[in-house]
C-alpha cells in the first residue's frame, strides 16, 4: 500500500508539479544513474528539490531512490513522521547524535548495499535562496567506506525562486538542472569534498543567468 502511495506521490503528483506547473530545462540527463548503488549530491534551496530530482530520474530509478534527511525536522510529529517514512521514503539522520548512537550514517550504508540510490544535500539545510552554503562532509564518510559507489553532482537553479524556504506560495518558474560528471573512487575526505565543491562551482557558472536578490 505504502509503495503504491509513494509511486503516486512521486510519479504522478511530483511529476505534475515539476514538469507541468514549473517546467525544467536539464543539461546532460544521460549522466544520471539508471540504477543503484549510487549517490546523487545536489544543492538544496527548497522542499521541491527532492521532487525535482525524483522527476528527472527514470521512473524505475526514482522508485529505487531515497533522500537522506534530518531526523529532527522530518520526524517532528506523528503525521509528518509517517509521511516522511512511507511516502517520501527518507533515510533519517540525526544531526546531533548522542553518545549511544554508534554510526549515524549506518542506514545509508544499508541502502547502498541493497543496491539503492541515495540522494544527499551536502549543504545540510536549505539556507539562503539561490546561494550555495558550506558543504558538510558526511558524504565523504560514505564514499570512504564504500569506494565503489559513484557520486553524481547535480546543480539546480530556480527552485529557490519558485518556492524558497519559509514561503508557502508556489510561483511557477522554469528551473535549470545541470548534471555533472560522476566523481568516483576518491577515498580521501578532503580531496573528495574539494572535487565536489569544484564540480558544483563549475556547474553553477556554466550558463549566464539573471541575478536574484
Amino acid at each position: 500500500m505504502a509503495k503504491i502511495l509513494r509511486a503516486i506521490f512521486y510519479l504522478i503528483i511530483g511529476r505534475f508539479i515539476i514538469l507541468v506547473i514549473l517546467g525544467i530545462d536539464i543539461k546532460r540527463r544521460e549522466l544520471l544513474p539508471a540504477k543503484g548503488p549510487a549517490i546523487i549530491a545536489a544543492n538544496h534551496n527548497s522542499h521541491l528539490d527532492i521532487l525535482l530530482l525524483m522527476s528527472i530520474l527514470p521512473w524505475k530509478a526514482a522508485l529505487n531512490a531515497y533522500p537522506v534527511a534530518a531526523a529532527d525536522y522530518f520526524l517532528k510529529n506523528k503525521i509528518m513522521s509517517w509521511f516522511s517514512h512511507n511516502i517520501v521514503g527518507i533515510i533519517p539522520i540525526k544531526r546531533k547524535p548522542s553518545a549511544a548512537d554508534r554510526d549515524i550514517l549506518a542506514p545509508c550504508y544499508d541502502k547502498l548495499s541493497d543496491g539503492k540510490i541515495i540522494i544527499i544535500f551536502p549543504e545540510g539545510s536549505r539556507g539562503e535562496p539561490e546561494v550555495m552554503g558550506e558543504l558538510k562532509s558526511g558524504i565523504a564518510h560514505i564514499v570512504k567506506r564504500m569506494p565503489e559507489v559513484n557520486v553524481v553532482p547535480v546543480f539546480i537553479r530556480g527552485l529557490g525562486k519558485a518556492l524558497p524556504k519559509g514561503e508557502a506560495l508556489l510561483v511557477p518558474l522554469i528551473c535549470k538542472v545541470y548534471v555533472g560528471e560522476s566523481i568516483s573512487a576518491i577515498s580521501d575526505k578532503v580531496k573528495l569534498m574539494e572535487a565536489l565543491k569544484n564540480s558544483f562551482e563549475a556547474l553553477s557558472h556554466e550558463e549566464k543567468h539573471s541575478d536574484f536578490k
Partner: peptide, 14 residues
C-alpha cells in the same frame, strides 16, 4: 512562465 523565468527579477517580485 518562459518570460518570468528569464527576466531579471527581485526576490519580492514573485
Amino acid at each position: 512562465k518562459e518570460f518570468f523565468s528569464q527576466i531579471p527579477s527581485r526576490r519580492i517580485d514573485r
